[in-house]
Design a protein around this nucleic acid. Sequence first.
DNA 1: GTTATCTGTTACAAAAAGGATAGTACTTAC
DNA 2: GTAAGTACTATCCTTTTTGTAACAGATAAC
Lengths: 114, 114
Amino acid sequence: MNNHTVESCSKAKMAIRDTLDVVGGKWKLVLISVLQSGKKGFNELSREAGISPRILSKELHEMEMNGLVSRTVCHTKPITVQYELTAYSQTLNEVLIAMQKWGHLHRQKIISRE
Amino acid sequence: MNNHTVESCSKAKMAIRDTLDVVGGKWKLVLISVLQSGKKGFNELSREAGISPRILSKELHEMEMNGLVSRTVCHTKPITVQYELTAYSQTLNEVLIAMQKWGHLHRQKIISRE
DNA sequence: GTTATCTGTTACAAAAAGGATAGTACTTAC
DNA sequence: GTAAGTACTATCCTTTTTGTAACAGATAAC
């Protein structure tokens, strides 16, 4: 099903796919949302997002590779690591805010129908 | 603006999850984007989005149940079906536009680094 | 020396998502 | 009656994603 005609590959479609490639899936936007309250350690992030270490590790790697989060090792007594949003990740703010607003709106719609 | 209390954070998380539940995955936003150029038949949609009939059928069902598209049977010579965006689906415009813009921005960033 | 914390990783399993192919049912055109 | 177009559905299979549990290396507290 690889019909890459000019028509079937409109700019809008491609852009949305690009976005989904970077930030799609179950966790990345949630993680960014959690990290917006400040830098966090690995376990802290795991607890607050409700994500298992294995998945968290994978997601953070991907996000780091895409320049969305930075990883800083702190040479404390038990070594800790701080994950922090990058400046680039803030270009996603519009997306995040729009999704937060819509999620809220949709929930209201569902609730008001019961 | 940056009021990141624990409460507002978990709300944000929930809202994002809600949105992803309805509109997450590989196809729904792409389908909406394609349908923005007007109502389309099943095969037409399949071709333009590059999605197989099986998946398309499933996605359309889910989108219909969530009030995002309407299905209209036209009693033409060979029966045709029109899928069309609902008014409610337009509440997703902000999300779509933000994602389109970001996808484009991100692609520029990637390209300019090569 | 056992327990606990931190940051992860590894192995295994399950579930969800997605895709390929073909087929159904109906109608029109040739 | 064969082909082609409409709208799907069924079956089977692969890939991707997600989860659980255990473990590892390091440090510190008890």
